[in-house]
């Protein structure tokens, strides 16, 4: 296992990182929903292993049952966005009964309009941010710009979540000593400051002893 993965695994504390990054994503969809006065907002993660989009965070309609649901990455409006890398706004979706039916079957909620923007990090597409049924009837280019700004934030949160998951996997795969080290790091992190300092001194001393041992 590469050293940087190990360091990331330990530094992230592994345990708890998933929850923290999920909370960040959740906060992003909640703020997006509030700003646009929308009925719902969601973040999809692109799973490149299965070529699917996965609901990672949902605010509003569907928040109780959509997390974890998967759709093929090449279809639907979220699919357009991820393959074309282009933000899109669509209205009057009710005009299309086929769309309404297929969405309703999947999610239980049929939006009349939605905005979707790709989440990009470096040269990778990570997923899609969607805002469903915003309050304003018309649409302005400023809203599109605002959605773009939000997408940056969501992309960063999504990347952190992916990194934490990679780190957790790396630790799990490595097993044995690494798991023990990660557990130690997590326990250390959770200690009150006073005890943490003492524990840190103890560990540094232990490292010195071990190092001295290997040098002889």
């Amino acid at each position: 296992m590469p050293d940087d993965n190990l360091r990331a695994a330990v530094a992230a504390g592994v345990v708890g990182a998933e929850e923290a990054h999920r909370a960040l994503l959740q906060s992003i969809v909640e703020v997006a929903r509030a700003i646009f006065g929308a009925k719902a907002s969601s973040v999809f993660l692109l799973d490149t292993d299965t070529d699917e989009l996965v609901f990672e965070a949902v605010s509003g309609e569907g928040e109780d049952h959509l997390i974890g649901m998967r759709i093929p990455s090449g279809t639907g409006i979220a699919g357009w966005v991820v393959v074309t890398r282009q933000p899109l706004v669509v209205d009057d979706l009710h005009n299309d009964p086929r769309f309404a039916r297929s969405v309703a079957e999947r999610t239980g909620y049929v939006p009349n309009g939605l905005m979707a923007v790709p989440l990009l990090a470096e040269d990778r597409a990570l997923g899609v941010l969607q805002v469903l049924d915003r309050a304003s009837a018309g649409f302005s280019l400023e809203e599109m710009e605002l959605l773009g700004l939000f997408a940056n934030q969501a992309a960063i949160a999504l990347e952190l979540l992916q990194r934490a998951r990679r780190a957790a996997r790396a630790v799990a795969d490595a097993g044995g000593d690494v798991v023990a080290a990660a557990r130690l790091a997590t326990t250390l992190e959770a200690l009150p400051e006073e005890r943490r300092d003492a524990a840190s001194r103890l560990l540094v001393a232990l490292a010195d002893v071990l190092r001295a041992d290997t040098q002889t």
């Binding site: 933000p87 899109l88 669509v90 209205d91 005009n95 299309d96 769309f99 599109m144």
Partner: peptide, 14 residues
């Protein structure tokens, strides 16, 4: 133009 002969309203550089 939208699938199945229908239309919708949309916005984007696309």
């Amino acid at each position: 133009a939208w699938l199945g002969g229908s239309t919708i309203r949309a916005t984007g550089n696309s």
